[in-house]
């Protein structure tokens, strides 16, 4: 079966700065893929390039193809993109307040999402479908409310309902639960999981939270400094990381088994566009040598591999 999303050699630049470089990424039908990274890693820009919503002076190059869409998404004009967005491709953002129109009742907003793409025959059936959809996200009574009358978690549920309204082939979530409390996060994550499972939609989930990715995704891509440094099945990458960054990140976030002191990655995350040449991690890496001034080649298959000159030994489980 062919992939739902296929990104090849994606680069994102703003003026003279390169923020994302050479990103390859595929998502199969019904597959749940996590894109993990810290600030400046380029994970959100990658998502915005896919859906064509980059800020004005930020430019993407490379190739983004979506199953069922005959044209290239990079460089596609606004008219063509608007036919794809919300129909084959939907996105949930971090901030649920700004994703909803404050002057419209939420029921009308959900109904409109379907009317735009004519996935329902008329206004009446759109309202019926909206009621049903809101019922499924546990907000049956919310049809006639305005966004400001709802809590952050309830608003995010509406946003998820909106995104799923037209049964998209691919749902992209960009840190959808970062602004929410853990108990609310659990509910939203479950909702997203149920939603994509029921529709057999593929999921691209962007976050900085390793545990969240491990809970909902099958495959993960680790980004740092605008590049994908490691990719593979969640169980592999999180138990036997090969890239030194992945290894350090896992150790630093392991609050469970560490005693008083946590293992750390030295230094700070550089500002976007100010990562070193060659291996982007070499300025913070304990294993870096002169060799790392050259861009490390990708080892392994596109779906499971890493880009590191001095990888961790293959059979060294860090998570017993």
């Amino acid at each position: 079966m062919s992939d739902v999303l296929s990104v090849q050699g994606l680069s994102v630049t703003v003026r003279d700065k390169t923020l994302v470089q050479d990103v390859d990424l595929t998502v199969g039908p019904g597959e749940r893929v996590g894109l993990i990274g810290e600030s400046g890693s380029g994970k959100s820009l990658t998502a915005l390039s896919v859906i064509g919503l980059l800020p004005e002076d930020v430019h993407a190059a490379g190739s983004v193809r979506l199953a069922g869409v005959s044209h290239e998404l990079i460089g596609a004009d606004e008219r063509r993109m608007s036919r794809v967005r919300g129909l084959q491709l939907a996105m949930v953002f971090q901030e649920p307040m700004t994703a909803l129109n404050p002057t419209m009742r939420v029921g009308d907003q959900v109904a409109e999402a379907m009317l735009i793409h004519r996935t329902v025959p008329g206004r009446r059936s759109a309202r019926l479908a909206a009621t049903e959809l809101l019922d499924r996200v546990g907000l049956a009574g919310a049809m006639k409310t305005y966004p400001h009358q709802l809590s952050g978690g309830q608003r995010q549920r509406i946003v998820v309902a909106l995104a799923l309204a037209n049964d998209p082939a691919l749902l992209i979530c960009d840190e959808p639960t970062t602004a929410l409390d853990v108990t609310v996060q659990a509910m939203i994550l479950d909702l997203i999981m149920q939603g994509v499972a029921a529709r057999e939609s593929a999921l691209l989930f962007i976050t900085h939270d390793l545990a969240v990715v491990a809970t909902i995704c099958q495959r993960v891509l680790v980004m740092y400094g605008g590049r994908v440094v490691e990719a593979g099945p969640v169980g592999e990458v999180f138990t036997r990381p090969r890239h030194r960054y992945t290894q350090g990140l896992l150790a630093a976030s392991d609050l469970e088994s560490a005693d008083a002191r946590l293992p750390t990655i030295p230094g700070n995350v550089p500002a976007a566009g100010q990562f070193p040449s060659g291996c982007v991690f070499r300025t913070r890496c304990a294993h870096a040598t002169e060799l790392c001034a050259e861009v490390p080649p990708w080892e392994g298959t596109p779906a499971h591999g890493f880009a590191c000159h001095h990888p961790a030994p293959a059979m060294e489980p860090t998570h017993a």
Binding site: Q185, A186, L210, A211
Partner: peptide, 26 residues
């Protein structure tokens, strides 16, 4: 109880915990 079970952790996730496990206790 709800709070503790809602926290996603790596060991639990790798042991196969799903989002419905996060909602346990809710």
């Amino acid at each position: 109880r709800r709070l503790v079970s809602a926290i996603p952790t790596l060991p639990r996730a790798l042991a196969g915990a799903t989002t419905s496990d996060l909602l346990r206790g809710a």
